[in-house]
């Protein structure tokens, strides 16, 4: 073997681990999106590097580690401005320290923290990250679950699940995040979203397989072997002897 790669399809993000036992972690992943003054990606990246932080492209987002190198958070472009997306599991202290540090090092006000305070007081809607990146695949999955979806002019996908209103929103090619309003029982919504996540990933597997087979033909590679393993993964071995 020469090189071994781990890859994720561009229609999928690995932002959040769903599953029946992950409810508490999911609640902690609730987003705190804090708008900044940055409009351009290059300005944001330059500022971070100048201040001694990293800025790694990560599935349509930018990932930055805190100075302790262990904790991290994401940057996402929303409504014309870059936002720092902290999760509830990032302690308030570490997020505040980061914002103070960046503003001190760059000698300018960068974050609009007053908006976060206003959002926290209202507490609705609650916003969570998702692993969905492909609009048509998400709509297809929702519809297969018997959910009526409405696509708004601004691109939002709105639907009602368990009497709660869910709005799936995407900026550029970043993963969708979901806003949940009027949820009587958040845990039930979580289970629903967890099943949706599973189904979406099965569609991704199937889509990757079908597209691969098509492209193999176009590239004139030959398939030496093809099998489905016990864990339901699909293995294709290509002969690339040239």
């Amino acid at each position: 073997m020469s090189v071994s790669l781990t890859m994720i399809p561009i229609v999928l993000a690995l932002r959040i681990v769903m599953g029946k036992n992950q409810f508490e972690k999911w609640v902690e992943s609730m987003e705190r999106a804090i708008p900044t003054v940055f409009v351009n990606e290059s300005d944001l990246v330059d500022a971070l590097i100048q201040a001694g932080y990293d800025a790694e492209k990560y599935g349509g987002l930018i990932k930055t580690h805190h100075l302790n190198k262990k904790d991290y958070f994401f940057w996402e472009f929303r409504q014309g401005k870059w936002h720092a997306i902290f999760s509830k599991q990032n302690s308030q202290d570490i997020a505040a320290q980061f914002m103070d540090d960046l503003e001190r090092k760059l000698k300018q006000k960068i974050f609009h923290r007053e908006r976060e305070s206003a959002v926290e007081q209202i507490e609705e809607p609650r916003v969570f990250p998702t692993n969905f990146r492909d609009r048509s695949l998400l709509v297809r999955t929702l519809q297969d679950f018997g959910v009526n979806t409405v696509q708004m002019n601004n691109g939002d996908i709105v639907c009602t699940i368990q009497n709660a209103q869910l709005t799936f929103r995407q900026e550029g090619d970043a993963p969708f995040h979901v806003e949940i309003a009027n949820a009587p029982r958040l845990q039930e919504i979580y289970y629903y979203l967890s099943d949706l996540d599973d189904e979406y990933k099965k569609y991704v597997q199937s889509q990757v397989y079908e597209k691969l087979k098509k492209k193999i033909k176009e590239k004139a590679f030959t398939i030496e072997n093809e099998e489905v393993l016990e864990d339901n993964s699909i293995v294709i071995t290509l002969n690339i002897q040239q």
Binding site: T6, I8, P9, V11, K201, Q205, V208, S233, T237, L238
Partner: peptide, 11 residues
């Protein structure tokens, strides 16, 4: 090239 596509979409 051996390609394995997992049910969770990872490759």
């Amino acid at each position: 090239i051996r390609i394995q596509i997992f049910p969770d979409g990872q490759i």
